[in-house]
Design a protein around this nucleic acid. Structure first.
Length: 491
RNA sequence: GGCCCCUUCGUCUAGUCAGGCCUAGGACACCAGGUUUUCAUCCUGGCGACAGGGGUUCAAAUCCCCUAGGGGUCACCA
């Protein structure tokens, strides 16, 4: 049997990392078994749906490197892939359920529901809901409905318990007296609800496996019971451990950034996000931390997914981002840093295009100091601003001023530099400079520390002669003499 | 509170299903060294866990039971 899995997000907010990880595991499972992965939009909550959210989901998942064989944008044999447009098929199923007496009309009002809830609350002991109208004569119920009295449709939960084998957790058993007679169709003939539509669609779309978050675990009996009511074989379920925040609760805005967009905006490499997400609840071999999507696909096993929730560790994520970023070629890196440099207003696109090779070289110079593309502007700033706008870091200034003879050394170095061949490569120049320093009896640090400060104003950074090459000799000399006469002139 | 799920270093995890190869491995973070013109990278080392208690067994992180703790869920949301 061909594996068919899906991700079924509701377009009601930002693209949560939990959604991304669930999508990633589903996708990896499908790809690893030569199966199909579909995208379906669960937009049955018309109050909360937004177009922006829908767009963000489609764009975000694509950006993450996932692709689907069927979906709202690519079509497929089971169109439409929006639940809001599948109403007719749900009505059909509903009729069958009515005919079999498996669902009933509940005429209770919102006020009655609220009262019931309050009573449960007060009793401190929640009992599953069994509507008063559960045992109403179906003929009478139909009559009242006919008469225009609003009702919701509820599922008649039988006695007993649901037992199933979770792909990740093993045997799970949930007693039915914990399961509400849940609502399939909202009062007043509203849109069918999630638990109903999800089953209908998974069934007609031939879904074979469902991997979803653990918060859905207690929903499973409702759905399993519905499959049984429809005389259908249910897909296999696997409940993924939750992504947790520092507070050990479900990852939410309170505990930091949760949406894919947040991390993209900071400049996390795509591959790092994929890799890190895969690491939350799963491990390739227990040793290898950095691995590709291909490796994930080849090795992913639902049975190997951990059962316990995973606390999201921003530090490790950042480290992983750096691992990927530093592996990139200078050309790739420059391409990826470009949007952030533009965003920071360091330069215009045309300007950079005109001196692209220079930009690539500049990115390469700071590469090993970056973890995120978004770190680039701060490191690159000195190479874009004029000497007048250069900011001198306090630590850099302090370090430079520790050398009493800094002005004399800088002045001497400026003369030396002017006498060097213009085309000299940075490493050669560095070697020549060190030899010259030795001749002069100047300690390397006594010049280099003030020199770095004069050149970039930063306490750390790339090789000094690479910096000079990046700035150009004229600009470098101007900064050296300028600092010697200015910020570094006195303590 | 009821029910369900879970429980190995601070964190992500390997090992648990097939008990001995585990004086519990890796990674992040942290600490200490080394490399370096600085910062960073990189390298080396260190710190650090089987929630607790009972059993079963020649042998238990691994099997069983109990306790504790954590999370999830209890919507006419998904």
């Amino acid at each position: 049997m061909t594996v068919r899995v899906r991700i079924a997000p509701s377009p009601t907010g930002s693209v949560h990392l939990g959604l991304c990880r669930t999508a990633l595991f589903n996708w990896a499972f499908a790809r690893g078994r030569k199966g199909q992965f579909l995208l379906r939009i669960e937009d049955t909550d018309t109050e909360r749906n937004t177009q922006e959210s829908l767009d963000a989901i489609l764009e975000g998942l694509k950006w993450l490197g996932l692709d689907w064989d069927e979906g709202p944008d690519v079509g497929g044999p089971h169109e439409p892939y929006f639940q809001s447009q599948r109403r007719a098929s749900y009505d059909e199923v509903l009729e069958r359920l009515f005919a079999q007496g498996l669902v009933y009309r509940d005429f209770s009002t919102p006020e009655q529901q609220e009262a019931w809830r309050a009573e449960q609350e007060a009793r401190k002991q929640r009992v599953a809901y069994r509507g008063d109208d559960r045992d109403l004569d179906p003929a009478e119920a139909a009559r009242r409905a006919e008469g225009g009295e609003p009702f919701a449709v509820r599922f008649r939960i039988p006695d007993g318990a649901t037992e199933f084998t979770d792909l990740i957790r093993g045997e799970v058993s949930i007693p039915h007296d914990e399961v509400d007679d849940w609502v399939l169709v909202r009062r007043g003939g509203g849109m069918p609800t999630y638990n109903f539509t999800v089953v209908c669609d998974d069934l007609t779309m031939g879904i074979t496996h469902v991997f979803r978050g653990e918060e859905h675990l207690v929903n499973t009996p409702k759905q399993l019971l519905l499959y049984a009511a429809l005389g259908a074989e249910a897909p296999a379920f696997g409940h993924l451990p939750l992504l947790l925040g520092k507070d050990r609760r479900k990852l939410s805005k309170r505990s930091g950034d949760t949406s894919l967009g947040d991390y993209r905006a900071k400049g996390f490499p795509r591959a790092a996000i994929q890799n890190f997400l895969a690491l939350q609840g799963w491990a390739l071999d227990g040793e290898t931390e950095v691995f590709s999507l291909e490796q994930l696909v080849a090795a992913f096993e639902p049975g190997a997914v951990s059962k316990a929730g995973a606390v999201f560790d921003p530090d490790k994520f950042l480290w992983l981002a750096g691992e990927y970023l530093r592996k990139e070629s200078p050309a790739e890196l420059a391409e990826n840093c470009l949007p952030f440099v533009l965003e920071a207003g360091l330069a215009g696109e045309e300007d950079l295009g005109a001196r692209w090779d220079w930009f690539v070289r500049a990115c390469a110079a700071v590469q090993e100091r970056l973890s995120l593309y978004g770190d680039a502007p701060a490191w690159l700033r000195p190479y874009f601003v004029g000497a007048a706008d250069l900011e001198y870091d306090e630590k850099a200034l302090k370090g430079a001023c520790k050398n009493a003879d800094r002005v004399a050394h800088l002045t001497a170095f400026a003369s030396w530099l002017e006498g060097r061949p213009v085309e000299e490569a940075a490493p050669d120049q560095a070697a020549a400079a060190k030899a010259w320093l030795a001749d002069e009896g100047i300690k390397v640090g006594a010049l280099f520390q003030p020199l770095r400060c004069a050149l970039t104003g930063q306490p750390g950074g790339p090789d000094l002669f690479e910096i000079i090459a990046l700035l150009g000799r004229e600009e470098a000399l101007a900064r050296i003499t300028g600092a010697a006469a200015g910020v570094l002139a006195s303590d």
